[in-house]
Structure formats: structure tokens, C-alpha cells
């Protein structure tokens, strides 16, 4: 039995130049779990995914994936590590010049020397799992947003990865597609025994399917817990986020000098509001 923890993040820091994006993140994710990472726009969620996949290098700290420190690997080792990962981009990122079938078959053709007949069977199985076996001959341009994301999901499970990362999988979907994608994430995670990381700000949909939630704000973990704990939480930040309130610990105003200073007004001449 392999160790239960798949990803371990220790004291992870990352900054673009002098701008700190992530400040001391600690996380632990196990096999078979669906984990949600939530936070406002620009809070560094997508950066975190890039650090896990090794596209970016941390300023300090490390990400450990299946026992290996990601940023210490050389190019070949990193590429072989990435074969164990899948990533679902916000809008699917399907290869527009390939048909649905070829998109799903892409990794099998690149990384394995399976015979074409076996690739065909595998692709149809993956497409069947997302309910789009009938769409195999369509081109990505002919798909709706929800369908494109399901094809992308089929593509990312093509080589049975240990981890799938979802970058905003619920953005811009109608309620039906939303439920379909949500349920697919849960079902595939259970059936394939992998780990799923869902980066999202769709609170209601994700709370239905996840096992554990991390809230990121200003580059630190602001809160964490199981969906039940999150719903019941009285912590002001979590409350604001879950219930979508305009003002609270996450301020409506971006940090700025006082309004009077910016408008060059003499405080004495200010009208009393």
C-alpha cells in the first residue's frame, strides 16, 4: 500500500519580483480526496497549481509530490512526474486542430507505443466515462463550454494520473453543466482512486462534492476545514466568502491612500457627509 499522503506542501513562499504572492503555505492532501482551494480573484490559487506542477519554482519552501520534491527535479524527471498529473484548464484548453477523439488520444500517442486499436478502445472508454462517446468526431469549436470541459476531463484522465488539478472548472457554466462537472469530479476521483484539487470560487457547488477546503487570502491560508465545518463556521472571513457579502475582512476597497488625499482636498474644506 503506497503512503496515503500524495502531496505535502511545506512553508511555501512565492513572489514575482518584490510582490509576494504566497506566504508560508502548508497543506497536505491524501489519495482519494477532493480538495477545494478557494479564495478571491488574484489570491494566488492558480500560482499554487503552477508550483505543484513545477511550471514555477518556489522562492522558498517546497512541494512534495509522491515523495519527490518537485522543484529539485531535472527536466526529464519533471516530465515523467507530470505524466502522473492531469490538469483541467479554465476553458478546457483543448487542442483546436485535433478532433475530440485525437485530443483524448494525444497523450497515449505521445507517451506510449500502444497499438492504434487499443488506443481506440481506451479513448472510447474515457469518453464514455464523461458521457461524450457520441461526440468523438466533433472538433473542439463545435462543442459547448460544458462539453469542452468534459472532453478536457477525459483527456486529463487519459493516462490514469494520480492527481488532477482543476483550474476554475465551474466558471461560465449553466446550472446543468455545473452539476454534471461537479459530479464527474467526485465520481472519477472515487472510481480511479486519485486525488483532485479544485481551485474555484464557486462555493455552493464545490461544498457539495469536496472532502476538505482551504481558503487562501493575501497569500496565506485564512481558514480550512471540512464542508460541514465551513458551513457552520462563524469566522468572519469564511462567513463573508461563503455567503458572498460585499464588505468584511476582504475589503471592498483596494488598499489606497485616503480618499481626501487622492482627490487633493484639504480636510478642512471637506463637506460633512
Amino acid at each position: 500500500m503506497p503512503p496515503k499522503t500524495l502531496i505535502e506542501i511545506n512553508d511555501l513562499n512565492f513572489s514575482y519580483g518584490t510582490r509576494a504572492i504566497l506566504k508560508g503555505i502548508n497543506m497536505s492532501m491524501s489519495r482519494g480526496q477532493v480538495i477545494a482551494i478557494m479564495g478571491g480573484s488574484g489570491s494566488g490559487k492558480t500560482t499554487l497549481l503552477r508550483l505543484i506542477s513545477g511550471t514555477l519554482r518556489p522562492t522558498s519552501g517546497h512541494v512534495r509530490f509522491a515523495g519527490e520534491v518537485v522543484h529539485e527535479l531535472d527536466r526529464d524527471a519533471l516530465f515523467s512526474l507530470r505524466r502522473k498529473m492531469g490538469m483541467l484548464f479554465q476553458f478546457g484548453a483543448l487542442f483546436t486542430d485535433l478532433s475530440v477523439f485525437d485530443n483524448v488520444a494525444f497523450q497515449m500517442r505521445e507517451h506510449t507505443s500502444l497499438p492504434e486499436s487499443m488506443i481506440r478502445d481506451l479513448v472510447l472508454m474515457k469518453l464514455h466515462a464523461v458521457g461524450l462517446r457520441g461526440a468523438q468526431h466533433l472538433m473542439p469549436a463545435e462543442l459547448s463550454g460544458g462539453m469542452a470541459r468534459r472532453v478536457a476531463l477525459a483527456r486529463s484522465i487519459a493516462l490514469d494520473p494520480m492527481l488532477i488539478m482543476y483550474d476554475e472548472p465551474f466558471t461560465g457554466l449553466d446550472p446543468i453543466s455545473l452539476t454534471v462537472i461537479g459530479n464527474l469530479i467526485r465520481r472519477l476521483t472515487d472510481v480511479l482512486g486519485m486525488t483532485s484539487i479544485v481551485v474555484t470560487h464557486d462555493v455552493q457547488e464545490s461544498l457539495k462534492i469536496v472532502d476538505y477546503v482551504y481558503f487562501i487570502a493575501d497569500g496565506v491560508i485564512a481558514a480550512e476545514g471540512t464542508p460541514q465545518q465551513v458551513r457552520d463556521s462563524i469566522a468572519p472571513f469564511v462567513h463573508q466568502f461563503v455567503h458572498g457579502e460585499e464588505d468584511g475582512p476582504v475589503p471592498f476597497h483596494y488598499p489606497a491612500p485616503t480618499y481626501q488625499q487622492d482627490l487633493d482636498l484639504d480636510p478642512k474644506e471637506m463637506p460633512v457627509v
Binding site: S53, T55, F79, S80, R82, R83, M85, M87, F89, Q90, F91, A93, L94, F95, T96, D97, F106, Q107, E110, H111
Partner: peptide, 25 residues
């Protein structure tokens, strides 16, 4: 235009994450 659009729609990044080098492929 084709390569630029592939980049803009994250296809190149997706490819790199599938352990396929977009420059080679």
C-alpha cells in the same frame, strides 16, 4: 496567429503539463 492563439487559450501550457514539449511538438 495559430501559435499565439494556442498560447492564449492555454493549449501550449496544457501540452507542457502533459509532459509534451510544445517547442518540439
Amino acid at each position: 496567429a495559430e501559435i499565439g492563439l494556442m498560447k492564449a487559450t492555454e493549449q501550449l501550457e496544457a501540452m507542457a503539463l502533459m509532459a509534451v514539449d510544445p517547442i518540439a511538438r
